[in-house]
Design a protein around this nucleic acid. Structure first.
Length: 487
RNA sequence: GGCCACAUGACCGAGCGGUGAGGUGGAGGUCUGCAAAACCUUUUACGGCGGUUCAAAUCCGCCUGUGGCCUCCA
Protein backbone atom coordinates (compact mmCIF):
# COMPACT_ATOMS: atom_id res chain seq x y z
CA UNK A 1 0.00 0.00 0.00
CA UNK A 2 0.96 3.58 -0.33
CA UNK A 3 1.16 5.38 2.99
CA UNK A 4 1.49 8.77 1.34
CA UNK A 5 -2.09 9.00 0.22
CA UNK A 6 -4.63 10.43 2.61
CA UNK A 7 -8.05 8.96 2.08
CA UNK A 8 -10.75 11.57 1.79
CA UNK A 9 -14.42 10.84 1.54
CA UNK A 10 -17.56 12.85 0.95
CA UNK A 11 -19.58 13.16 4.13
CA UNK A 12 -23.26 13.82 3.50
CA UNK A 13 -23.58 15.47 6.89
CA UNK A 14 -21.05 18.19 6.09
CA UNK A 15 -21.71 18.15 2.35
CA UNK A 16 -18.00 18.13 1.61
CA UNK A 17 -15.01 15.87 1.38
CA UNK A 18 -13.23 15.19 4.64
CA UNK A 19 -10.03 13.40 5.58
CA UNK A 20 -10.85 9.92 6.83
CA UNK A 21 -9.69 9.49 10.40
CA UNK A 22 -11.09 6.41 12.10
CA UNK A 23 -12.19 6.76 15.70
CA UNK A 24 -10.01 3.79 16.73
CA UNK A 25 -7.53 3.13 13.95
CA UNK A 26 -6.71 0.64 12.59
CA UNK A 27 -10.24 -0.51 13.33
CA UNK A 28 -13.08 0.76 11.18
CA UNK A 29 -16.75 0.22 11.92
CA UNK A 30 -19.04 0.46 8.93
CA UNK A 31 -22.80 -0.04 8.91
CA UNK A 32 -24.72 -0.28 5.63
CA UNK A 33 -28.48 -0.52 5.35
CA UNK A 34 -29.22 -3.82 3.68
CA UNK A 35 -32.16 -5.07 1.69
CA UNK A 36 -35.73 -5.73 2.72
CA UNK A 37 -36.16 -9.36 1.84
CA UNK A 38 -39.77 -9.59 0.77
CA UNK A 39 -38.88 -9.80 -2.90
CA UNK A 40 -35.99 -10.22 -5.30
CA UNK A 41 -33.35 -7.54 -5.16
CA UNK A 42 -33.28 -5.56 -8.36
CA UNK A 43 -30.25 -4.16 -10.09
CA UNK A 44 -30.57 -0.76 -8.43
CA UNK A 45 -30.25 -2.38 -5.01
CA UNK A 46 -27.24 -4.28 -6.23
CA UNK A 47 -25.49 -1.12 -7.28
CA UNK A 48 -25.47 0.18 -3.72
CA UNK A 49 -24.05 -3.05 -2.37
CA UNK A 50 -21.42 -3.22 -5.09
CA UNK A 51 -20.44 0.37 -4.26
CA UNK A 52 -20.02 -0.46 -0.59
CA UNK A 53 -18.16 -3.62 -1.52
CA UNK A 54 -15.66 -1.40 -3.33
CA UNK A 55 -15.39 0.85 -0.27
CA UNK A 56 -14.97 -2.14 2.04
CA UNK A 57 -12.35 -3.68 -0.23
CA UNK A 58 -10.34 -0.49 -0.48
CA UNK A 59 -10.38 0.05 3.28
CA UNK A 60 -9.21 -3.54 3.74
CA UNK A 61 -6.53 -3.04 1.12
CA UNK A 62 -5.28 0.03 2.97
CA UNK A 63 -4.81 -2.24 5.98
CA UNK A 64 -7.78 -1.23 8.10
CA UNK A 65 -9.46 -3.87 10.21
CA UNK A 66 -13.00 -3.36 9.03
CA UNK A 67 -16.06 -4.61 10.82
CA UNK A 68 -18.66 -4.36 8.10
CA UNK A 69 -22.22 -4.75 9.34
CA UNK A 70 -25.06 -4.97 6.85
CA UNK A 71 -28.51 -5.79 8.11
CA UNK A 72 -31.26 -7.88 6.64
CA UNK A 73 -34.64 -6.24 7.12
CA UNK A 74 -37.06 -9.08 7.66
CA UNK A 75 -39.69 -7.49 9.87
CA UNK A 76 -41.82 -4.60 10.62
CA UNK A 77 -41.87 -2.25 7.67
CA UNK A 78 -45.37 -1.13 6.92
CA UNK A 79 -46.97 -0.33 3.66
CA UNK A 80 -49.31 2.56 3.04
CA UNK A 81 -49.52 6.09 4.24
CA UNK A 82 -50.54 6.00 7.83
CA UNK A 83 -48.89 3.01 9.35
CA UNK A 84 -51.92 1.02 8.41
CA UNK A 85 -52.17 -2.16 6.51
CA UNK A 86 -50.28 -5.39 6.62
CA UNK A 87 -46.65 -5.67 6.94
CA UNK A 88 -44.85 -6.55 3.79
CA UNK A 89 -43.96 -10.03 4.84
CA UNK A 90 -47.36 -11.23 5.82
CA UNK A 91 -48.90 -9.66 2.73
CA UNK A 92 -46.47 -11.32 0.42
CA UNK A 93 -46.80 -14.52 2.38
CA UNK A 94 -50.53 -14.59 1.83
CA UNK A 95 -50.06 -14.14 -1.90
CA UNK A 96 -47.61 -16.95 -2.11
CA UNK A 97 -49.25 -19.15 0.51
CA UNK A 98 -46.14 -19.23 2.58
CA UNK A 99 -45.10 -18.49 6.10
CA UNK A 100 -43.55 -15.03 6.50
CA UNK A 101 -40.26 -16.54 7.56
CA UNK A 102 -40.37 -18.74 4.50
CA UNK A 103 -40.46 -15.60 2.36
CA UNK A 104 -37.60 -14.14 4.36
CA UNK A 105 -35.55 -17.28 3.94
CA UNK A 106 -36.16 -17.55 0.23
CA UNK A 107 -35.24 -13.97 -0.62
CA UNK A 108 -32.33 -13.85 1.78
CA UNK A 109 -30.80 -16.81 0.00
CA UNK A 110 -31.56 -15.19 -3.34
CA UNK A 111 -29.85 -12.01 -2.22
CA UNK A 112 -26.77 -13.88 -1.09
CA UNK A 113 -26.61 -15.81 -4.36
CA UNK A 114 -26.68 -12.59 -6.35
CA UNK A 115 -24.06 -10.92 -4.19
CA UNK A 116 -21.82 -13.92 -4.65
CA UNK A 117 -22.23 -13.69 -8.41
CA UNK A 118 -21.20 -10.05 -8.23
CA UNK A 119 -18.15 -11.20 -6.26
CA UNK A 120 -19.06 -9.01 -3.30
CA UNK A 121 -17.31 -9.91 -0.06
CA UNK A 122 -19.81 -10.88 2.63
CA UNK A 123 -20.18 -8.46 5.54
CA UNK A 124 -18.54 -9.33 8.85
CA UNK A 125 -21.92 -9.44 10.55
CA UNK A 126 -25.31 -9.64 8.88
CA UNK A 127 -27.88 -9.15 11.63
CA UNK A 128 -31.60 -9.57 11.08
CA UNK A 129 -34.33 -7.39 12.50
CA UNK A 130 -36.31 -10.36 13.80
CA UNK A 131 -33.23 -11.59 15.62
CA UNK A 132 -32.90 -8.33 17.51
CA UNK A 133 -36.40 -7.61 18.75
CA UNK A 134 -35.33 -7.37 22.38
CA UNK A 135 -32.56 -4.89 21.54
CA UNK A 136 -35.08 -2.78 19.67
CA UNK A 137 -37.56 -2.89 22.53
CA UNK A 138 -34.81 -1.88 24.92
CA UNK A 139 -33.88 1.10 22.78
CA UNK A 140 -37.49 2.21 22.51
CA UNK A 141 -37.74 2.04 26.31
CA UNK A 142 -34.67 4.20 26.66
CA UNK A 143 -36.01 6.77 24.24
CA UNK A 144 -39.27 6.91 26.16
CA UNK A 145 -37.25 7.23 29.38
CA UNK A 146 -35.33 10.18 27.96
CA UNK A 147 -38.62 11.81 27.10
CA UNK A 148 -38.49 11.74 23.33
CA UNK A 149 -41.20 9.18 22.70
CA UNK A 150 -44.70 8.49 23.92
CA UNK A 151 -47.04 5.54 23.98
CA UNK A 152 -50.55 5.61 22.61
CA UNK A 153 -52.78 2.56 22.52
CA UNK A 154 -49.98 0.04 22.42
CA UNK A 155 -47.93 1.93 19.85
CA UNK A 156 -44.93 4.14 20.52
CA UNK A 157 -44.06 7.27 18.54
CA UNK A 158 -40.98 9.42 18.38
CA UNK A 159 -41.64 13.06 19.26
CA UNK A 160 -39.90 14.84 16.40
CA UNK A 161 -41.01 18.33 17.33
CA UNK A 162 -39.69 18.05 20.87
CA UNK A 163 -36.46 16.56 19.57
CA UNK A 164 -36.02 19.29 17.00
CA UNK A 165 -36.12 21.95 19.68
CA UNK A 166 -32.91 20.57 21.12
CA UNK A 167 -31.22 18.94 18.16
CA UNK A 168 -30.94 19.61 14.48
CA UNK A 169 -33.40 17.06 13.12
CA UNK A 170 -32.61 17.82 9.48
CA UNK A 171 -28.83 17.76 9.85
CA UNK A 172 -28.46 15.25 7.03
CA UNK A 173 -30.58 16.93 4.40
CA UNK A 174 -30.32 20.54 5.59
CA UNK A 175 -34.02 21.11 5.15
CA UNK A 176 -36.08 23.62 7.05
CA UNK A 177 -38.51 22.23 9.57
CA UNK A 178 -41.24 24.50 8.24
CA UNK A 179 -40.81 23.08 4.77
CA UNK A 180 -40.96 19.56 6.12
CA UNK A 181 -44.16 20.33 7.95
CA UNK A 182 -45.64 21.94 4.87
CA UNK A 183 -44.98 18.74 2.98
CA UNK A 184 -46.91 16.49 5.31
CA UNK A 185 -50.60 15.80 5.04
CA UNK A 186 -53.08 16.71 7.72
CA UNK A 187 -53.44 14.32 10.55
CA UNK A 188 -56.66 12.42 10.42
CA UNK A 189 -58.82 12.34 13.54
CA UNK A 190 -57.94 8.70 14.14
CA UNK A 191 -54.22 9.30 13.97
CA UNK A 192 -52.43 8.58 17.19
CA UNK A 193 -49.46 10.78 16.46
CA UNK A 194 -49.17 14.04 18.31
CA UNK A 195 -47.03 15.72 15.71
CA UNK A 196 -47.26 15.31 11.99
CA UNK A 197 -43.56 14.49 11.68
CA UNK A 198 -43.63 11.89 14.42
CA UNK A 199 -42.77 8.36 13.36
CA UNK A 200 -43.43 4.96 14.85
CA UNK A 201 -40.92 3.17 17.06
CA UNK A 202 -43.27 0.34 17.97
CA UNK A 203 -46.58 -0.56 16.36
CA UNK A 204 -49.46 -2.43 17.91
CA UNK A 205 -50.30 -5.54 15.92
CA UNK A 206 -53.78 -6.05 14.60
CA UNK A 207 -55.32 -9.47 15.20
CA UNK A 208 -54.62 -10.66 11.66
CA UNK A 209 -51.03 -9.57 11.80
CA UNK A 210 -48.78 -12.63 11.69
CA UNK A 211 -45.37 -11.23 12.64
CA UNK A 212 -45.76 -10.11 16.23
CA UNK A 213 -43.83 -9.94 19.45
CA UNK A 214 -44.71 -9.16 23.06
CA UNK A 215 -43.47 -5.86 24.44
CA UNK A 216 -44.02 -3.59 27.42
CA UNK A 217 -46.69 -1.86 25.31
CA UNK A 218 -48.49 -5.01 24.22
CA UNK A 219 -48.14 -7.29 21.26
CA UNK A 220 -46.74 -5.58 18.20
CA UNK A 221 -43.76 -5.14 15.95
CA UNK A 222 -40.95 -2.60 15.58
CA UNK A 223 -41.09 0.56 13.46
CA UNK A 224 -39.09 1.09 10.33
CA UNK A 225 -36.01 2.81 11.64
CA UNK A 226 -35.29 1.40 15.06
CA UNK A 227 -33.66 -1.82 13.85
CA UNK A 228 -30.68 -0.06 12.31
CA UNK A 229 -30.13 2.10 15.38
CA UNK A 230 -30.35 -0.88 17.71
CA UNK A 231 -28.17 -3.21 15.66
CA UNK A 232 -25.52 -0.68 14.72
CA UNK A 233 -24.98 0.34 18.31
CA UNK A 234 -24.98 -3.29 19.43
CA UNK A 235 -22.22 -4.35 17.04
CA UNK A 236 -20.32 -1.13 16.43
CA UNK A 237 -20.95 0.94 19.52
CA UNK A 238 -22.85 4.15 20.04
CA UNK A 239 -20.41 5.93 17.76
CA UNK A 240 -18.78 4.32 14.79
CA UNK A 241 -16.99 5.45 11.66
CA UNK A 242 -19.10 4.99 8.56
CA UNK A 243 -22.81 4.66 8.01
CA UNK A 244 -23.92 4.07 4.47
CA UNK A 245 -26.85 3.38 2.27
CA UNK A 246 -28.65 4.52 -0.83
CA UNK A 247 -29.39 8.21 -1.23
CA UNK A 248 -33.09 7.52 -1.06
CA UNK A 249 -32.66 6.59 2.59
CA UNK A 250 -31.07 9.83 3.70
CA UNK A 251 -34.13 12.05 4.03
CA UNK A 252 -36.28 9.74 6.08
CA UNK A 253 -34.62 6.58 7.31
CA UNK A 254 -31.21 7.96 8.18
CA UNK A 255 -32.62 11.22 9.50
CA UNK A 256 -34.73 9.22 11.92
CA UNK A 257 -31.85 6.94 12.82
CA UNK A 258 -29.81 9.93 13.85
CA UNK A 259 -32.70 11.26 15.90
CA UNK A 260 -33.15 7.92 17.66
CA UNK A 261 -29.47 7.61 18.50
CA UNK A 262 -29.16 11.21 19.64
CA UNK A 263 -32.24 10.89 21.82
CA UNK A 264 -31.03 7.61 23.29
CA UNK A 265 -27.27 8.08 23.56
CA UNK A 266 -26.80 11.81 22.99
CA UNK A 267 -24.28 11.05 20.27
CA UNK A 268 -24.21 11.13 16.52
CA UNK A 269 -24.18 7.44 15.60
CA UNK A 270 -21.70 7.79 12.74
CA UNK A 271 -18.80 10.10 11.99
CA UNK A 272 -19.13 9.79 8.22
CA UNK A 273 -22.36 9.32 6.28
CA UNK A 274 -21.90 7.92 2.78
CA UNK A 275 -24.71 7.78 0.25
CA UNK A 276 -24.68 6.03 -3.07
CA UNK A 277 -26.60 7.35 -6.01
CA UNK A 278 -29.37 5.70 -7.96
CA UNK A 279 -29.26 3.51 -11.01
CA UNK A 280 -31.54 4.94 -13.68
CA UNK A 281 -33.20 3.52 -16.74
CA UNK A 282 -33.84 6.05 -19.49
CA UNK A 283 -33.08 8.75 -16.97
CA UNK A 284 -35.60 7.59 -14.39
CA UNK A 285 -34.75 5.93 -11.13
CA UNK A 286 -35.05 2.19 -11.15
CA UNK A 287 -37.52 1.27 -8.45
CA UNK A 288 -40.06 -1.28 -7.44
CA UNK A 289 -42.98 1.10 -7.65
CA UNK A 290 -42.00 2.53 -11.04
CA UNK A 291 -41.96 -0.98 -12.45
CA UNK A 292 -38.83 -0.26 -14.46
CA UNK A 293 -36.58 -2.48 -12.44
CA UNK A 294 -35.13 -5.69 -13.58
CA UNK A 295 -33.53 -8.49 -11.73
CA UNK A 296 -29.87 -9.37 -11.93
CA UNK A 297 -30.89 -12.78 -13.19
CA UNK A 298 -32.77 -11.21 -16.09
CA UNK A 299 -29.76 -9.10 -16.89
CA UNK A 300 -27.47 -12.12 -16.95
CA UNK A 301 -29.76 -14.08 -19.24
CA UNK A 302 -31.03 -11.17 -21.32
CA UNK A 303 -34.57 -12.35 -20.72
CA UNK A 304 -36.28 -8.97 -20.41
CA UNK A 305 -37.98 -6.62 -22.92
CA UNK A 306 -35.49 -3.83 -22.22
CA UNK A 307 -32.50 -6.04 -22.93
CA UNK A 308 -31.04 -6.95 -26.28
CA UNK A 309 -29.04 -9.77 -24.78
CA UNK A 310 -27.46 -10.95 -21.55
CA UNK A 311 -24.42 -9.57 -19.80
CA UNK A 312 -22.22 -11.44 -17.38
CA UNK A 313 -22.06 -10.50 -13.69
CA UNK A 314 -18.50 -9.21 -14.02
CA UNK A 315 -19.45 -7.09 -17.02
CA UNK A 316 -22.21 -5.55 -14.95
CA UNK A 317 -19.92 -5.02 -11.98
CA UNK A 318 -17.34 -3.38 -14.23
CA UNK A 319 -20.09 -1.21 -15.73
CA UNK A 320 -21.07 -0.04 -12.26
CA UNK A 321 -17.48 0.64 -11.25
CA UNK A 322 -16.89 2.77 -14.34
CA UNK A 323 -19.16 5.39 -12.77
CA UNK A 324 -18.52 7.14 -9.46
CA UNK A 325 -20.72 5.89 -6.64
CA UNK A 326 -22.18 9.34 -5.98
CA UNK A 327 -23.27 9.88 -9.60
CA UNK A 328 -26.40 8.50 -11.11
CA UNK A 329 -25.66 5.76 -13.59
CA UNK A 330 -27.89 5.33 -16.56
CA UNK A 331 -28.48 1.85 -17.81
CA UNK A 332 -28.50 1.06 -21.52
CA UNK A 333 -27.62 -1.82 -23.78
CA UNK A 334 -25.03 0.33 -25.55
CA UNK A 335 -23.32 1.23 -22.27
CA UNK A 336 -23.22 -2.45 -21.29
CA UNK A 337 -21.79 -3.38 -24.69
CA UNK A 338 -19.03 -0.84 -24.20
CA UNK A 339 -18.28 -2.09 -20.69
CA UNK A 340 -18.18 -5.69 -21.83
CA UNK A 341 -15.52 -4.94 -24.42
CA UNK A 342 -13.56 -2.78 -22.04
CA UNK A 343 -13.66 -5.44 -19.33
CA UNK A 344 -12.42 -8.12 -21.73
CA UNK A 345 -9.61 -5.86 -22.87
CA UNK A 346 -8.51 -5.23 -19.30
CA UNK A 347 -8.67 -8.89 -18.29
CA UNK A 348 -6.90 -9.96 -21.46
CA UNK A 349 -4.02 -7.65 -20.58
CA UNK A 350 -4.00 -9.07 -17.08
CA UNK A 351 -3.68 -12.59 -18.53
CA UNK A 352 -0.77 -11.49 -20.68
CA UNK A 353 1.27 -10.41 -17.65
CA UNK A 354 2.64 -13.90 -17.15
CA UNK A 355 3.89 -14.08 -20.73
CA UNK A 356 5.92 -10.87 -20.78
CA UNK A 357 9.65 -11.02 -21.38
CA UNK A 358 11.84 -8.72 -19.35
CA UNK A 359 14.73 -6.57 -20.57
CA UNK A 360 17.62 -4.82 -18.88
CA UNK A 361 16.02 -1.49 -19.52
CA UNK A 362 12.54 -0.23 -18.99
CA UNK A 363 10.50 2.21 -21.04
CA UNK A 364 7.87 2.46 -18.34
CA UNK A 365 7.87 3.72 -14.79
CA UNK A 366 5.31 1.72 -12.86
CA UNK A 367 5.88 3.57 -9.60
CA UNK A 368 4.32 6.70 -11.01
CA UNK A 369 1.32 4.77 -12.32
CA UNK A 370 0.91 3.07 -8.96
CA UNK A 371 0.84 6.38 -7.16
CA UNK A 372 -1.86 7.61 -9.51
CA UNK A 373 -3.99 4.55 -8.77
CA UNK A 374 -3.85 5.25 -5.04
CA UNK A 375 -4.52 8.92 -5.59
CA UNK A 376 -7.65 8.03 -7.56
CA UNK A 377 -9.06 5.63 -5.00
CA UNK A 378 -8.14 7.79 -2.04
CA UNK A 379 -10.13 10.64 -3.53
CA UNK A 380 -13.53 9.44 -2.35
CA UNK A 381 -13.16 6.01 -3.96
CA UNK A 382 -12.93 7.27 -7.53
CA UNK A 383 -13.05 3.94 -9.33
CA UNK A 384 -13.62 5.46 -12.82
CA UNK A 385 -10.26 7.19 -12.65
CA UNK A 386 -8.63 4.07 -11.25
CA UNK A 387 -9.97 2.12 -14.21
CA UNK A 388 -8.63 4.74 -16.62
CA UNK A 389 -5.19 4.26 -15.04
CA UNK A 390 -5.50 0.49 -15.33
CA UNK A 391 -6.18 0.87 -19.04
CA UNK A 392 -2.89 2.71 -19.20
CA UNK A 393 -1.34 -0.34 -17.55
CA UNK A 394 -3.07 -2.53 -20.13
CA UNK A 395 -1.54 -0.47 -22.91
CA UNK A 396 1.90 -0.94 -21.39
CA UNK A 397 1.38 -4.69 -21.12
CA UNK A 398 0.18 -5.00 -24.72
CA UNK A 399 3.03 -2.87 -25.98
CA UNK A 400 5.61 -5.04 -24.26
CA UNK A 401 3.86 -8.19 -25.44
CA UNK A 402 3.99 -6.89 -29.00
CA UNK A 403 7.70 -6.34 -28.59
CA UNK A 404 7.31 -2.62 -29.11
CA UNK A 405 8.49 -1.63 -25.68
CA UNK A 406 10.80 -2.94 -22.97
CA UNK A 407 10.25 -3.54 -19.29
CA UNK A 408 12.76 -4.67 -16.68
CA UNK A 409 12.35 -7.22 -13.94
CA UNK A 410 11.68 -4.72 -11.20
CA UNK A 411 8.99 -2.81 -13.08
CA UNK A 412 7.32 -5.97 -14.34
CA UNK A 413 7.10 -7.31 -10.83
CA UNK A 414 5.55 -4.13 -9.53
CA UNK A 415 3.20 -4.06 -12.52
CA UNK A 416 2.02 -7.56 -11.63
CA UNK A 417 1.45 -6.55 -8.05
CA UNK A 418 -0.39 -3.42 -9.12
CA UNK A 419 -2.73 -5.24 -11.47
CA UNK A 420 -3.47 -7.97 -9.00
CA UNK A 421 -4.05 -5.53 -6.12
CA UNK A 422 -6.35 -3.22 -7.97
CA UNK A 423 -8.21 -5.48 -10.38
CA UNK A 424 -8.73 -8.45 -8.10
CA UNK A 425 -8.59 -7.09 -4.55
CA UNK A 426 -9.89 -3.53 -4.81
CA UNK A 427 -12.26 -3.61 -7.78
CA UNK A 428 -13.22 -7.19 -6.99
CA UNK A 429 -13.18 -8.30 -10.61
CA UNK A 430 -12.42 -11.86 -11.55
CA UNK A 431 -11.94 -14.04 -14.57
CA UNK A 432 -15.14 -15.54 -15.85
CA UNK A 433 -13.81 -17.98 -18.40
CA UNK A 434 -13.24 -21.32 -16.85
CA UNK A 435 -10.24 -22.58 -18.76
CA UNK A 436 -10.11 -26.07 -17.42
CA UNK A 437 -7.08 -28.19 -18.13
CA UNK A 438 -9.13 -30.48 -20.33
CA UNK A 439 -10.33 -27.64 -22.48
CA UNK A 440 -6.84 -26.19 -22.61
CA UNK A 441 -5.36 -29.44 -23.86
CA UNK A 442 -8.16 -29.85 -26.37
CA UNK A 443 -7.60 -26.34 -27.66
CA UNK A 444 -3.85 -26.95 -27.97
CA UNK A 445 -4.64 -29.97 -30.11
CA UNK A 446 -7.12 -28.13 -32.33
CA UNK A 447 -4.70 -25.24 -32.76
CA UNK A 448 -1.96 -27.66 -33.79
CA UNK A 449 -4.26 -29.23 -36.40
CA UNK A 450 -5.08 -25.80 -37.74
CA UNK A 451 -1.39 -24.89 -37.84
CA UNK A 452 -0.76 -27.96 -40.03
CA UNK A 453 -3.47 -26.81 -42.41
CA UNK A 454 -2.02 -23.32 -42.50
CA UNK A 455 1.45 -24.65 -43.19
CA UNK A 456 -0.02 -26.56 -46.12
CA UNK A 457 -1.71 -23.33 -47.28
CA UNK A 458 -5.00 -25.12 -46.80
CA UNK A 459 -6.75 -21.94 -45.71
CA UNK A 460 -10.17 -23.39 -46.37
CA UNK A 461 -9.62 -25.83 -43.52
CA UNK A 462 -7.94 -23.35 -41.19
CA UNK A 463 -10.77 -20.85 -41.67
CA UNK A 464 -13.34 -23.57 -41.17
CA UNK A 465 -11.83 -24.40 -37.78
CA UNK A 466 -11.67 -20.76 -36.78
CA UNK A 467 -15.24 -20.08 -37.86
CA UNK A 468 -16.61 -23.15 -36.13
CA UNK A 469 -14.89 -22.20 -32.87
CA UNK A 470 -16.11 -18.65 -33.22
CA UNK A 471 -19.67 -19.91 -33.39
CA UNK A 472 -19.35 -21.56 -30.01
CA UNK A 473 -17.78 -18.47 -28.53
CA UNK A 474 -14.07 -19.17 -28.79
CA UNK A 475 -11.89 -16.62 -30.57
CA UNK A 476 -8.58 -17.58 -32.10
CA UNK A 477 -5.85 -14.96 -32.36
CA UNK A 478 -2.84 -15.60 -34.58
CA UNK A 479 0.18 -13.81 -33.19
CA UNK A 480 3.90 -13.86 -33.75
CA UNK A 481 4.38 -16.30 -30.91
CA UNK A 482 1.70 -18.63 -32.18
CA UNK A 483 -2.03 -18.84 -31.82
CA UNK A 484 -3.85 -17.99 -28.62
CA UNK A 485 -7.52 -18.27 -27.80
CA UNK A 486 -10.09 -16.73 -25.55
CA UNK A 487 -13.74 -17.19 -24.70
C1' G B 1 -46.05 23.29 -4.67
C1' G B 2 -41.47 23.12 -1.23
C1' C B 3 -36.37 21.58 -0.85
C1' C B 4 -32.00 19.54 -3.29
C1' A B 5 -29.05 17.79 -7.22
C1' C B 6 -27.47 17.41 -12.19
C1' A B 7 -26.85 19.19 -17.50
C1' U B 8 -19.79 17.00 -20.92
C1' G B 9 -18.20 14.82 -27.92
C1' A B 10 -22.03 9.36 -31.78
C1' C B 11 -22.73 6.61 -26.75
C1' C B 12 -21.22 5.60 -21.45
C1' G B 13 -18.66 8.39 -18.18
C1' A B 14 -14.21 11.32 -15.15
C1' G B 15 -12.62 16.20 -14.24
C1' C B 16 -14.76 21.14 -10.86
C1' G B 17 -9.91 27.84 -12.27
C1' G B 18 -4.68 27.24 -16.44
C1' U B 19 -1.18 20.27 -19.75
C1' G B 20 -6.89 16.70 -25.28
C1' A B 21 -9.20 11.30 -18.27
C1' G B 22 -10.65 6.63 -19.85
C1' G B 23 -13.88 3.00 -22.27
C1' U B 24 -17.09 2.00 -26.60
C1' G B 25 -18.16 3.49 -31.60
C1' G B 26 -16.35 5.89 -36.46
C1' A B 27 -12.02 6.90 -39.90
C1' G B 28 -6.88 5.89 -41.50
C1' G B 29 -2.41 2.98 -40.79
C1' U B 30 1.07 -1.21 -38.92
C1' C B 31 0.94 -6.56 -38.39
C1' U B 32 -1.57 -10.97 -40.83
C1' G B 33 -2.71 -15.81 -46.25
C1' C B 34 -7.32 -13.40 -44.70
C1' A B 35 -9.49 -12.20 -40.13
C1' A B 36 -9.44 -11.26 -34.98
C1' A B 37 -6.59 -9.21 -31.24
C1' A B 38 -2.93 -5.68 -30.34
C1' C B 39 -0.34 -1.11 -31.32
C1' C B 40 -0.07 3.96 -33.68
C1' U B 41 -2.72 8.25 -35.74
C1' U B 42 -7.35 10.60 -36.05
C1' U B 43 -12.63 12.02 -34.26
C1' U B 44 -10.70 18.27 -29.36
C1' A B 45 -16.96 18.22 -26.19
C1' C B 46 -18.59 20.79 -21.88
C1' G B 47 -27.47 23.36 -22.12
C1' G B 48 -28.49 29.03 -23.11
C1' C B 49 -27.47 34.21 -21.71
C1' G B 50 -24.79 37.46 -18.69
C1' G B 51 -20.83 38.35 -14.88
C1' U B 52 -15.98 37.71 -11.97
C1' U B 53 -10.81 36.64 -13.62
C1' C B 54 -4.72 37.52 -17.09
C1' A B 55 -7.36 32.68 -17.62
C1' A B 56 -13.94 29.10 -16.67
C1' A B 57 -16.52 22.86 -18.64
C1' U B 58 -14.75 24.26 -13.68
C1' C B 59 -16.65 30.30 -9.58
C1' C B 60 -21.34 33.75 -9.36
C1' G B 61 -26.35 35.20 -11.26
C1' C B 62 -30.52 34.39 -14.33
C1' C B 63 -33.04 31.18 -17.80
C1' U B 64 -34.19 26.38 -19.93
C1' G B 65 -34.24 21.11 -19.37
C1' U B 66 -33.87 16.49 -16.62
C1' G B 67 -33.96 13.93 -12.19
C1' G B 68 -34.23 12.97 -6.78
C1' C B 69 -36.57 13.71 -1.94
C1' C B 70 -41.10 15.38 0.46
C1' U B 71 -45.18 8.32 0.73
C1' C B 72 -42.40 1.87 0.94
C1' C B 73 -37.81 1.65 -1.96
C1' A B 74 -30.52 0.90 -2.28
Amino acid sequence: MNPNTQLVLYNTISRQKEAFEPINAPFVGMYVCGPTVYGDVHLGNCRTFVSFDLINRYLLHLGYKVRYVRNITDAGHLEGDRDEGDDKFSKKARIEQLEPMEIVQRYTIGFHDIMRMFNALPPSIEPTATGHISEQIEMVREIIGKGYAYEVNGSVYFDVEKYSRQYNYTILTNRQMDDLLAGTRDLGGQDEKRGRLDFALWIKAKPEHIMRWPSPWGVGFPGWHIECSAMSSKYLGDQFDIHGGGMDLAATHHTNEIAQSQACNHTQPAKYWLHTNMLTVNGTRMSKSAGNGFLPQELFTGDHPLLKRGYSPMTVRFFMLQAHYRSTLDFSNEALDASEKGFKRLMNAYDLLGKLKTSNTSDFDIEDLRARCYTAMSDDFNSPILIAELFEAARIINTVYDGKGAIDEKNLSSLKELMSNFILDVLGLKEETCQTDDLGQLMDFIISLRLDAKNNKDYATSDKIRNALSKIGIQLKDGKEGTTWSK
